[in-house]
């Protein structure tokens, strides 16, 4: 099997469409013939599980305390001992989304995990728990996409360490451009400081309104600032994306798509193809 491709969706800001991007890129990569695993570290609200309609089942398991092991367990120092005692530890964590990719949903335990990771004195160990898990237990997948929190903490650092490739969805706006610039600079500093090769692999202009001149101006600005990193297609704003997510599916499982949704879907497909090419390069 070829080397597993990994990417993490990250920006130190909420509401830019990280979860939607991971969901749609995941399905697009699956449609291209890849075995895809999505990992939701973005917070206990478990939005990726909601996006694929598996939240109710997972919520019931959480309420019944039938939710162990879960994604927060793999970060604990006891994980190796736990995994040895379970026949197929990965199978205990994974859900079928019904749209191609498998999913390890977020868990409320992620909320307290950040504090626990602070207890680990050695920086390398603190930030490499997820990487160790992926290297040792996550086989059989061609692509792993990780949805990270919209803030910088020990969990997002674990995601960056493990993936080393970052996909950044941004909206067309002056603050977002500045945040993307800051992230690019931060990733370079992380690579220098900690001797890991974390790079900004793809910047996706998301939720664009192609009818406005302002959007065009920001597109030009991003093109100049992120040459070679910008995704080939902007993803237009579409109410269908939101509606589908509320119904627990992606656009791929929707029927009767609006024109904007069709353009969004085409953009996700083209961007997924390009992401795969860049991750393999």
């Amino acid at each position: 099997m070829s080397e597993q491709l990994r990417a993490a969706s990250f920006l130190d800001k909420g509401g830019t469409g990280k979860t939607t991007t991971v969901a749609h890129l995941g399905v697009a990569l699956s449609e291209r013939g890849n075995d895809v695993l999505l990992i939701d570290l973005a917070g206990k609200q478990a939005d990726l599980a909601k996006n694929f309609g598996v939240w109710e089942d997972y919520r019931e398991r959480i309420e019944a305390e039938d939710d162990w092991p879960n994604i927060s367990t793999v970060f604990r120092e006891q994980w190796t001992r736990i995994a040895k005692k379970i026949d197929d530890p990965l199978d205990e964590l994974v859900y079928d989304t019904g749209e191609g990719p498998d999913l390890i949903p977020a868990h409320p335990g992620l909320d307290g995990l950040d504090t626990e990771l602070n207890d680990i004195e050695e920086i390398e160990e603190r930030y490499s728990r997820l990487e160790e898990f992926l290297d040792s237990y996550v086989s059989g997948y061609d692509v792993v996409l990780i949805d990270l929190p919209g803030s910088t903490n020990n969990i997002s650092y674990n995601g960056l360490w493990a993936a080393q490739h970052v996909v950044v969805p941004v909206e067309a706006g002056p603050f977002e451009a500045q945040q993307a610039e800051t992230l690019k600079s931060d990733l370079e500093r992380i690579s220098d400081r900690f001797d890991v090769d974390v790079e900004l692999t793809m910047l996706v202009m998301n939720k664009t309104d192609q009818r406005t001149k302002l959007s065009e101006e920001f597109a030009d600005e991003y093109s100049a600032a992120f040459d070679g990193v910008l995704a080939p297609h902007e993803v237009p704003r579409s109410q269908d994306v939101r509606n589908a997510a509320v119904e627990g599916r992606t656009l791929y499982a929707e029927r009767g798509l609006s024109e904007s949704a069709k353009r969004a879907l085409e953009a996700f497909e083209e961007n997924a193809e390009e992401l795969e090419r860049r991750l393999k390069a």
Binding site: W68, T73, R76, I82, K85, I86, P108, G109
Partner: peptide, 22 residues
């Protein structure tokens, strides 16, 4: 998963959110 040690590990690592922790 009836193993005693596994149950102990479950108790140690089940994880909780900040609200329960408080």
């Amino acid at each position: 998963m009836t193993d005693d040690e596994l149950e102990e590990l479950r108790q140690q690592t089940r994880g909780t959110d900040r609200i329960d922790a408080t």
